Simulated scan of single mutants.
Amino acid sequence: MGLVRRVVNLQSVEQKLLLLALLFVAGGSIAANLFGWDVQWQIPLIYAVLYVLLSVTIEIRDQQAPTASTHYRTSDEFFLSFARLVRTAERHIYTSYVRNTPPQSFQSPAAQQYFRTAVDWTRRNPGASFHRIIGVPAQEPGQSAMRQWLREHYEEMRGIANYHARIVITNSGVDAVNMAIIDDSAVLLLLTADGSFMSGHSLETAEAVNSFRDYYRSWWASAEPLESYARRTDLIAPIP
């Protein structure tokens, strides 16, 4: 006959023994009330029961998987979450803004708060880095408006050493899927069309962060530095 080894789950045995202790304490309490017994002997068992209750609570909490993704129903929900994550960033933020309309097309206070938060974070964290890929339409409609905003943006951010922007020329009438990667913690995706919010999502898994970061770096490598684009296209009028 073969020897069968049984693996004993100590946590399960512990919980069963303490459940019996709980029943014993409950029964003893009833008897103590009926016959006037001293209940001090039950105190160690009461502490043991409290321990098992805490143990079970912790086990239930640990078994609950964190939410790996979030769907934002409105642009305000998306931008408020975006701003919150930006404020918690410690090392780097990668973003893209590849649309046919400039940021002013988002008129809500939540969107405006996000753009202010991004600028403030970059200024307050000189040891970190903020990267942004900006799309400029190759033709009208959209080109003039985007270049006008880009001119103002260039002046605002010039001289901030930890802000890095690159330009891609777009030929499509459809907005790109824009993204933001916050440290190693989250990826946010924004879908828009015709200047209007469609949907927003966040992914909070290491696999998603790594995949989108690799994609972003490839996109970044093919884009033109903002300073080079500004000189090449006379975005900023030369000083006479």
Rank of each mutant, 00 (worst) to 15 (best):
D38S: 15
M179N: 08
P141F: 04
S185H: 13
V13N: 08
R151L: 15
A230T: 13
Y47I: 07
L85E: 11
P126E: 05
N33D: 04
A48V: 09
A176G: 07
S69R: 07
N210G: 13
I46R: 10
Y229S: 07
L19T: 15
L54K: 11
P225D: 11
L53W: 06
S69M: 12
I43S: 08
L189A: 10
V86Y: 01
G36F: 09
P225G: 08
G195N: 02
E140H: 08
V136F: 07
N171P: 02
H71A: 12
P141L: 02
A221W: 01
R147H: 08
V86F: 00
Q143I: 02
G27M: 10
P238D: 11
G36I: 13
I60A: 12
H153I: 00
D38F: 06
D62F: 04
Q15P: 00
T233R: 05
D76F: 03
T117D: 10
V177W: 05
S96M: 02
Y229G: 06
A206Y: 02
I236L: 15
R73G: 10
S211W: 05
R124C: 02
L80G: 01
T117Y: 00
G2L: 09
R166H: 14
L226D: 06
S75D: 11
L53D: 01
L150D: 08
Y114K: 03
M179S: 12
Q42W: 06
T192D: 09
N100R: 13
V98W: 00
V49E: 04
L20Y: 11
A230R: 12
I134D: 03
S81I: 03
F212P: 04
I181W: 01
V177S: 13
A230I: 13
T117K: 06
R124T: 05
T101R: 09
D76C: 09
V4M: 11
N33S: 09
E152M: 12
Q64I: 12
R231Q: 15
Q40I: 13
S199R: 14
R147D: 10
E224W: 00
H131C: 08
D38Y: 07
D76Y: 00
Y47N: 00
H153Q: 15
P44L: 01
L189F: 05
L23S: 10
P109D: 14
S81C: 11
P141E: 03
F24H: 10
W220E: 05
L3E: 05
V39I: 12
G142R: 09
D234C: 12
T88W: 00
F79S: 06
I167W: 06
N100E: 01
A118Y: 03
L18P: 05
T233P: 01
A89Q: 01
E224I: 14
A118H: 02
L22F: 14
Q104R: 14
V52G: 02
E90V: 06
E14T: 11
E59R: 12
E156N: 12
R147T: 12
T192L: 09
Q63N: 14
H201M: 15
A65M: 07
D120G: 02
M198P: 06
